[in-house]
Each structure stands twice: as C-alpha cells, then as structure tokens.
Simulated assay, not measured.
Amino acid sequence: MTLKVAICDDDNTVSSQIEQVLQSYSKINFEIDVYYTPEKLMHALAYETYDFYILDIVFPTSSGLEIATTIRTINQTVPIIFLTTYSAYMEQVFKVNTFDYLLKPVLASDLTATLDRLTHYLQLSDATFQFQFNKIVYRIPLRRICYFEKCRRTVFIHLANGEEFETILTTKSLLEKLSADFVQIHHSYIINVTYIQKMSQKSMLLTSHKQQINLPMSRKFNSIAKEQILIRLRETI
C-alpha cells in the first residue's frame, strides 16, 4: 500500500532530508510531492488530496498555520506534522489538530518514530474495503471513502477525491465490511463520519474535496445514526 504525502518547506536541504527518511522507511511506501512555497501547495489543494502533510511553519510570505487552517476546511482529520526551529509555536499548532510537532534540525529517528505512530493511527493493516466488479478485485483504504450510495443491489462508492466505483452487495454484507467510522443514515446512504461538516434533523452535510454533499437522513435511522455518530466523534477527540 502507498500513502500520498505533501511536504512544504522552503529549505531544499530540509525537504531532501525528509524525503530520504520517507524513502528509507521500510513499513510502507510513500508517494511524495514537495512544495517550496505555501502558495503552490494551496493551489494544489484544489485538485490534489493527501493522506498526510509535513509542513514548515515560517515562510517569508505566509505560514504553515495558514495552510493547516485551509486543509482543515477540506478534511478535519487528515494528519498534519509541523516542522519548526521555534518551540514557541507549539500552542498555536495544536489548535489546528496537529498530529505531531518536530523541532529542526529533524532527527531521522524522531521522524521515523512519528511515522510509526502515523501508520498505526491510520490502521493500514486492515482498514481497507475490498470488492469485485467486472471480475476485477479492488482494495481501497476506508479513510478515502466519503460515502456509499445503495440503489437496489448496486453500491456506488464515492471517494473523497471525487472518484467513483461500483459493486454488487447487499446492505448487510456491506456493513459487515466497514469500520465504526461508517454509519447508515438512510436505506440508500452509509456515510463516513470523518467527513461530516454539519448535522441537521433531516440531513447530513459532508465536505469532500472542497465539495459539499447534502444527504437525506430518514426517520427510521435518525436517532440511532446520531447516537452512533456522537459516540464515534467522542472517541476520536
């Protein structure tokens, strides 16, 4: 399995060092994009999605905190790792739900330890959804799935980056394949709670890849769905 990571640091030496540690990490493969200015990464966020981010804090024209704030409007749970030479920023970075905070110069052992915790957090060993369609077997990380849409026996799989797949499954079989992050809100919809932006009495508003998706919540599932969602959100805080 491969994780996609964005590095944003205007110091070429630091970026190269981080790349080397990622490339030598033995437990998982990484697809790495490097940005040397916040503006370039902010522009890329309109069409790219990442499994986690490694950000410097101080830039001449902007800050990593501003990037993180923008990322949080798109995805509230994606891990963000900050790099800085100043410990004074520690209080600020944790306001944007930071996964970790590493002081420069970054030691390879410290970054490796963070990557160990990161892979455990993402539960890479079993957090995938495997299905078959047209005799082809697919395996997709559950964290990348925004919601499932059921139409008779056909299941449409809507990914956070806008991609769509489909397969044939009963609702019971589908639910058995999913983690506690997924909750059924309607006979046609099962959502990933990590993409919820707003709950109302009759619908759920999801945010995915800078798009908002409003899905109906039926009376049948209203109470139990909200209870399951609140329990799950408390567990992740």
Results as ranks from 00 to 15, higher is better:
residue 15 S to I: 00
residue 10 D to A: 06
residue 101 Y to N: 02
residue 149 E to Q: 14
residue 161 N to L: 02
residue 84 T to D: 04
residue 114 T to E: 04
residue 59 F to L: 10
residue 70 T to I: 10
residue 5 V to Q: 00
residue 213 I to Q: 09
residue 159 L to G: 00
residue 138 Y to W: 10
residue 187 H to Y: 11
residue 98 T to P: 02
residue 212 Q to I: 07
residue 72 R to S: 07
residue 38 P to G: 08
residue 64 G to W: 04
residue 47 Y to V: 08
residue 112 T to G: 03
residue 171 T to Y: 05
residue 215 L to K: 00
residue 63 S to L: 07
residue 132 Q to N: 13
residue 154 T to K: 15
residue 70 T to P: 00
residue 146 C to W: 01
residue 222 N to A: 15
residue 39 E to K: 15
residue 50 Y to P: 01
residue 78 V to N: 00
residue 229 I to T: 03
residue 24 S to V: 01
residue 120 H to W: 04
residue 110 D to R: 15
residue 117 R to S: 10
residue 228 Q to D: 04
residue 44 A to L: 09
residue 194 T to Q: 10
residue 2 T to H: 11
residue 87 S to E: 15
residue 119 T to I: 15
residue 50 Y to C: 04
residue 141 P to W: 03
residue 166 E to D: 09
residue 62 S to T: 11
residue 124 L to W: 04
residue 21 V to W: 03
residue 127 A to E: 14
residue 155 V to P: 01
residue 1 M to H: 09
residue 180 A to Q: 10
residue 136 I to H: 12
residue 147 Y to C: 02
residue 181 D to M: 04
residue 175 L to S: 09
residue 59 F to Q: 07
residue 121 Y to V: 00
residue 31 E to Q: 13
residue 29 N to T: 11
residue 63 S to E: 05
residue 134 N to W: 03
residue 177 K to M: 12
residue 42 M to F: 04
residue 235 E to Q: 14
